[in-house]
């Protein structure tokens, strides 16, 4: 990362990596369950592009709410279903909800999340269901 690749520096890096792996192995703290990465590679790129668009749209909405003189905020806490099976996909879904301004995942349970919305409108749950379906498509590789 520093642009210097002399054998001494690279050797130091390799040595410290080997030593830390050895120490962690001796400490026996690596938990045994491995998480297999099962995400559809094409779908997740599509999902990221779509998520960028959503972030832009909701950023403009929240910016309007901040700069408006009378602050039209209408807060609500509501429940949304998540149909993903693996924990990784659930984490992606919850982080996506929090990443788009205006909605924040407050509490996660097994098959639903509590979501707090800043400017709640009645079609917000439908929009979150749409995002849920897209994350499910990333997980399984099916049609979005």
């Amino acid at each position: 990362m520093s642009g210097v690749y002399s054998p001494l520096i690279v050797g130091f890096g390799a040595m410290s990596a080997v030593i830390s792996v050895f120490v962690i192995h001796r400490m026996n703290v690596v938990d045994q369950d491995r998480i297999p990465l099962q995400l559809h590679p094409v779908r997740i790129v599509q999902y990221w592009l779509w998520l960028m668009g959503e972030i832009a749209k909701s950023n403009i909405a929240v910016t309007k709410a901040i700069l408006a003189r009378d602050m039209p905020i209408r807060q609500n806490l509501f429940k949304t279903n998540c149909s993903q099976k693996t924990e990784l996909a659930q984490v992606i879904f919850a982080n996506s909800i929090t990443l788009t301004p205006g909605t924040i995942t407050v509490e996660t349970e097994d098959d639903h999340f509590w979501v707090h919305a800043l400017c709640y409108s009645d079609d917000d749950p439908a929009a979150l269901d749409d995002m849920d379906a897209r994350v499910l498509a990333v997980e399984t590789g099916g049609k979005a």
Partner: peptide
């Protein structure tokens, strides 16, 4: 507090 969370997420993401 709950609305301030959303304000922070604007400067955090965009």
């Amino acid at each position: 507090f709950w609305s301030r969370l959303h304000a922070v997420s604007v400067s955090d993401s965009a």
